[in-house]
């Protein structure tokens, strides 16, 4: 298992796709730097304000969409020149290959989240924030957002194993991600829409009584439920996929 994971990491590292993980934080800095903080007065913590404005694009669009690109990237070289058949002809379990790819994707998303944390800090320095850094709140947001991508990553890995092209899994991703813009505005639908969870769990204006910014039962049912559905779907599909 460890060996498979190391091999996956090696292949990814050599594929020159790693620069895309700085894409999100980069765009967050751009958006964060453009935002006019002076227009918002009224006792808000400057950091919180910056995070709120940056999350609007980062958690709503970038994070769900980039999971698809990452998933397609780590399946790309397998589709290209018969990589699947070579990989699966090795003495490794198919299940382990799937889990390794999944774990690697989760680690990459976590790395992106950490870089995003860095991006928030850079935006603060650029704008010369003087307020105290709300570390606890931001950690909650970073970790929560990561957790919320678990089901999305699983679905995208599944789609990327089915389709050879980047465009097809991306189309699926887009179809589910765009409605998020409306869903997060709805108190009735937002909590149940899996693609809205990264935004909800990163939304630092949310209910802070629980560990995360959304109630535990929502984390367990919506994130957990869709995770089980998509992960098992992909896992079983991969087990049965004729190579």
């Amino acid at each position: 298992m460890g060996a498979v994971l190391r091999s996956e990491w090696y292949k990814l590292r050599k594929s020159k796709m790693l620069p895309i993980i700085v894409a999100g934080p980069l765009i967050a800095v751009i958006i964060g730097a453009m935002f006019n903080y002076d227009s918002m007065e009224g006792g808000f913590n400057q950091w919180s304000l910056a995070v709120l404005s940056m999350n609007l694009t980062y958690a709503l669009l970038f994070l769900p969409l980039i999971t698809g690109v990452l998933a397609s990237s780590i399946c790309r070289y397998e589709h290209q020149a018969g990589g699947w058949k070579q990989l699966l002809a090795l003495p490794v379990r198919r299940g382990n290959v799937f889990i390794s790819k999944y774990v690697l994707l989760l680690l990459l998303v976590f790395l992106i989240q950490l870089l995003y944390l860095g991006a928030i800090y850079i935006v603060g320095i650029i704008n010369g924030f003087t307020d105290p850094f709300p570390l606890e709140i931001i950690w909650k947001s970073i970790l929560g957002g990561w957790l919320a991508t678990f089901p999305l990553v699983a679905l995208q890995l599944w789609m990327s194993i089915i389709f050879k092209s980047f465009a097809a899994p991306f189309a699926v991703n887009v179809i589910f991600t765009l409605p998020t813009i409306l869903a997060v505005n709805s108190e009735r639908f937002g909590p149940f829409y899996p693609w809205a969870q990264p935004f909800s769990m990163m939304y630092i204006g949310g209910n802070a009584e629980d560990v995360f910014f959304v109630p535990w039962d929502q984390v367990l049912t919506v994130v957990g439920g869709s995770f089980i559905l998509f992960f098992l779907g992909g896992y079983i599909y991969f087990q049965r996929k004729p190579i």
Binding site: M17, I20, I27, T57, L60, V69, R76, F166, A167, F170
Partner: peptide, 17 residues
């Protein structure tokens, strides 16, 4: 590598948004 145009597309939609 089609990851490049797709990533460009993500940038695009974020700008559009």
């Amino acid at each position: 590598n089609q990851g490049i145009p797709i990533t460009t597309g993500i940038f695009g939609v974020i700008f559009a948004y």
